[in-house]
Design a protein around this nucleic acid. Structure first.
Lengths: 192, 192
DNA sequence: GACTTTCTAAAACAATCATTTTAATATTGT
DNA sequence: ACAATATTAAAATGATTGTTTTAGAAAGTC
């Protein structure tokens, strides 16, 4: 009964995600996405509803496809080593010449332009990462790798705040050289 | 010879700055600004050239009028007390319910949407603050308030990175309660 | 009061925006 | 082959974008 899709939903979503990531929601037009994906305008709207819906699916794609490896660092190694490796992966990304930040955090300062559902996805993304950090720090404490008097909850939000910092600070083209030392400084807090 | 301005340039600039601050460059239309300021469209373009020119003047206004007190903290007290007070003023701002971030940093993740001149102003703004922090930390070391083995340059960029973090992290409506403790944690690095 | 300059109101501009519609074409199950 | 369904290309929609123009009114200098 009827014809099948010719386009690949994930491919389209991947290319849309890249555009939003690079240019931001507001600066990316539906015409841009149609041009890049080659998908027809009508099919676009049939598949994703509207621009807000497409952006929300892009956020989900980003979390599942792009950020999954970073989440995995913390679930594979929920301990001090995992926390350090996680932060290092953020820093390594931010140092790159072509760094374009984080799709989520790039839009955190532009809440007014995106849907309420999208804002919630961004908040949830951050909360999920902070939760993983807290668990890892709690384990680190049990392992004896984190001093007993430290507060894992407070440290998790401190690190999450620093991650926001690195992601944003990394957008300054001329400040990248200082970031590796910042990484060391951030982690000093975890030591006695 | 000829009529004088009826509008006040600074008032207009102040209201335009508020709009850009709150909604972002891309989401703020010239029509928005004309409506809010009451100034005529033609006068607007005569006075500021175009939207990019207006935004650049808004950035300058923001730096001179809005951020001046924060700069003053570091020039009045270029020492450890100044650094702590500076960071505290950032944190106090971020905790507020109506917090809208920093006009500069809000657009750091949206470089693609603004003029090259505007991008440069944002980078200069950050570099200036980081410079003041470094001077203050160097003085703190001379005062004996900062351990001799610490590196003021590295610490200045660490704090500046954390400021970026607090400003962005503070946009999460549900994470504000954790920020005061983050302030304490950030400053731990300055102690032995 | 003539002259000059600058303001203002409002319309006009072409481009772009997100989105819908129209009409034709392709592919499937029966 | 037929009917059902999906995809497609392309035009049309109406709103909004940044910007310019036109025409006239207000306030200065001489």
């Amino acid at each position: 009964m009827g014809r099948n899709r010719k386009y690949d939903r994930w491919d389209v979503l991947g290319e849309a995600t890249n555009l939003f990531w690079q240019q931001g929601y507001r600066a990316t037009s539906m015409a841009d996405i149609v041009r890049v994906t080659g998908l027809n305008t009508a099919s676009m709207y049939k598949e994703f509803g509207d621009k807000d819906g497409l952006f929300e699916e892009a956020l989900q794609y980003y979390r599942e496809q792009v950020m999954a490896p970073r989440f995995k660092i913390l679930t594979d190694d929920p301990n001090l080593k995992g926390v350090e490796a996680f932060l290092k992966s953020v820093v390594d990304g931010a140092i790159k010449e072509t760094y374009r930040g984080c799709l989520m955090m790039n839009h955190l300062a532009q809440k007014h332009s995106i849907s309420a559902a999208a804002v919630k996805m961004i908040d949830d993304f951050t909360a999920a990462m902070e939760g993983l950090l807290e668990t890892a720090l709690r384990n680190a404490q049990a392992d004896g790798d984190l001093p007993a008097e430290k507060d894992p909850t407070a440290l998790a939000s401190y690190i999450m705040c620093c991650v926001h910092g690195v992601v944003l600070y990394g957008r300054h083209q001329d400040k990248k050289s200082g970031i590796p030392r910042i990484y060391d400084t951030i982690l000093q807090v975890l030591r006695a």
